[in-house]
Design a protein around this nucleic acid. Structure first.
Length: 583
RNA sequence: GGUCAUGUAGUUCAGCUGGUUAGAAUGCCGGCCUGUCACGCCGGAGGUCGCGGGUUCGAAUCCCGUCGUGACCGCCA
């Protein structure tokens, strides 16, 4: 028997017990006459004590143990004369009678402590050592509990988890597919699923009614802090539901997780905001509503003073930063630089200081009298002590830029606390998006999303104006999940493919099996998929989903620990009938 | 594909406008220490300054290229 107890469970009430513990040496403190070792396992840390007086030979041996050696120690639980209130086991220690080295360890390249001295790159290379640290361990435990609680909720709601295939048919729509060559079908490829979309719809056709799956999905696109090539979704689908039924069910799941894991309760239903409203007020389809600072449009009243920047703009909007009228020239310059970054691309930034003495100071004083400025301030609801930040230009571009500025101000003013959670549903997304490069419409969500019934006639006259039965769950400015009510009639689905520029042949070749299934009694259905990694990182307060994934890929989609991807042998290539172009 | 940042002991970093032997902390090794818990004290080892080229009397420092890493834009139905 390697252990009778874990390193996290012994307390003062266990004093006197003979116990055996196994674990890793966290650190040792050699005081000469006595030596203390901190023994760590998944459950905690327990202090082992060795004394020269009582057992010189053993104590001498214990001094030689290095960091991260794996040992098994037998001894008696004793009350400490000097207790350590900082650790749960701090009232006791083990007076070791005997120990065995189960394994040696090289000195780890960084310290296995909460505040490690290791950099990102190194910790990624030795991920298994990094995972020994509490922050990552706690994240993985949190992840486990969240998956467990999600399944618990869905089980109570009569959902069943069904596994869908990982080797599936490639389709050109949407993200780039990862492909897998088929050995027995030379020259042909599977794709890894970007999501189990078609399969969950087929499960609805099959009558399974309420489906969920915590499932790996794959997208061969560039990475971000919140994007990995393989990621996990909580994928769900329901039959005989309208949009409201779906929102209610999955809002319930989110609320359950918050209640069970974070002990946070939301009294009322999550706010609903249309896509149009989100863009108008926040310049963003995933607004962070932990703070206000909503846009105020000034297009109608700010023009006509001879300031060409405003006069030629088809949109003028502002945000009001309360209490920021004292911003220095340097701070204003920084904000201007911020919006002029190529990623944001604004031409400039106009400010109006609403001074506490009732006067106004603006970067456009040359064109606007104090009365004019007062008028603008009044329209924006700015009061003495506030700073108005104004942007103008082409409407969509300006809204987006103002949205970025709003988030930046939120950061600067510490309005984005990680301990506050503000969820909402963004609804009524456009069905289609025009792509300038390929000169065609793409489905904003996916091609199976149903249009709002009233907007169906617009499919022929004004496709861009068609709204979809599509919704996103947004928390703190993070898109946590998205879904839609699907098309379940063959006719409408055909129409949709037509609008997307598919010929009947192409539609048949790529989605024939789904279209065929729809001919056999597809029920009305809809669903949603949550980004599980993002949800966990939100709960964990982490900025990157890498911190909640056991073995993530780096920026360049590489596993630096395993050095993957890597080349394969000529034999493998030949078997797969693949020839690699040497560059 | 693009923009920005970054690369210096095992590790995390400092090293100003170019100037003699490249520093600190931590880790590691050795010594001392009987109540530590980030133990303490003393001593020691450890660096081709990512790589290649250039400018210069002289380059960790300036320039060009390249590679690695990170953030973002494009991309992500």
């Amino acid at each position: 028997m390697y252990r009778t107890h874990t390193c996290g469970e012994l307390r003062i009430t266990d004093t006197g017990k003979k116990v055996t513990l196994s674990g890793w040496i966290l650190r040792s403190r050699d005081l000469g006459g006595m030596t203390f070792l901190d023994l760590r396992d998944r459950y905690g840390v327990t202090q082992l004590v060795f004394n020269m007086e009582s057992n010189a030979a053993l104590c001498t041996e214990a001094r030689k143990l290095g960091r991260e050696f794996v040992i098994q120690a037998e001894g008696q639980v004793a009350e400490r004369s000097n207790k350590n209130p900082k650790m749960p086991t701090g009232d006791i220690e083990i007076q070791v009678a005997r120990f065995t080295i189960l394994n040696y360890s090289l000195t780890p390249p960084f310290t296995i402590e909460d505040e490690s001295d290791g950099g990102d790159e190194l910790r990624m290379k030795y991920r298994y050592l990094d995972l020994r640290r509490n922050p990552l361990k706690n994240n993985l435990l949190l992840r486990h509990r969240m998956a467990y609680e999600a399944r618990h909720y869905f089980n109570l709601q009569h959902f069943i988890e069904v596994e869908t295939p990982v080797l599936i048919k490639s389709t050109p729509e949407g993200a780039r597919d990862f492909v897998v060559p088929s050995r027995v079908n030379p020259g042909q490829f599977y794709a890894l699923p970007q999501s189990p979309q078609t399969f969950k719809q087929l499960l609805m056709v099959a009558g399974y009614d309420r489906y969920m799956q915590i499932v790996k999905c794959f997208r061969d696109e560039d990475l971000r802090a919140d994007r990995q090539p393989e990621f996990t979704q909580i994928d769900c689908e329901m039959s005989f539901v309208h949009q409201e039924d779906v929102l209610e069910m999955f809002e319930g799941m989110i609320k359950h997780l918050f209640k069970a894991i974070k002990v946070v309760e939301f009294g009322e239903v999550f706010p609903r905001m249309t896509y149009a409203e989100a863009m108008e007020k926040y310049g963003n389809d995933k607004p962070d509503i932990r703070f206000g600072m909503e846009f105020i449009e000034l297009t109608g009243i700010a023009k006509g003073k001879g300031f060409s920047v405003l006069d030629t703009a088809n949109y003028i909007g502002c945000i009001v930063a309360s209490g920021c009228s004292e911003y220095t020239r340097k701070q204003l310059d920084e904000l201007t630089e911020f919006v002029k970054k190529p990623q944001i691309g604004a031409k400039g930034l106009i400010y109006i200081r609403c001074n506490t003495d009732g006067t106004f100071k603006s970067s456009m004083d040359k064109f606007y009298t104090p009365d004019d400025l007062q008028g603008l301030a009044k329209a924006a609801g700015a009061v003495a002590g506030d700073l108005m930040l104004i942007m103008a230009g082409e409407k969509m571009t300006t809204l987006r830029a103002l949205g970025e500025l709003r988030l930046e101000m939120g950061n600067r003013l510490n309005l984005r606390s990680k301990n506050i959670f503000k969820p909402l549903w963004v609804v009524d997304f456009p069905l289609l998006e025009w792509d300038r490069e390929t000169k065609r419409f793409y489905a904003m969500h996916h091609p199976f999303t149903s249009p709002k019934t009233g907007d169906i006639p617009l499919l022929d006259t004004d496709p861009a104006g068609v709204r979809a039965n599509a919704y996103d769950c947004v928390i703190n400015g993070v898109e946590i999940g998205g879904g839609s009510i699907r098309i379940h009639e063959e006719g409408l689905q055909k129409k949709m493919f037509q609008v997307l520029g598919f010929t009947d042949d192409e539609a048949e070749r790529q989605f024939g099996f789904l279209m065929q299934a729809f001919r056999y009694g597809a029920p009305p259905h809809g669903g949603i998929a949550f980004g599980f990694d993002r949800l966990v990182s939100l709960f964990a307060g982490e900025d990157s989903i890498r911190d909640v994934i056991a073995f993530p890929k780096n920026n360049a989609a590489r596993d630096v620990m395993a050095d993957c991807p890597s080349e394969i042998s000529d034999v493998q290539l030949k078997e797969l009938s693949i020839r690699v172009q040497k560059s």
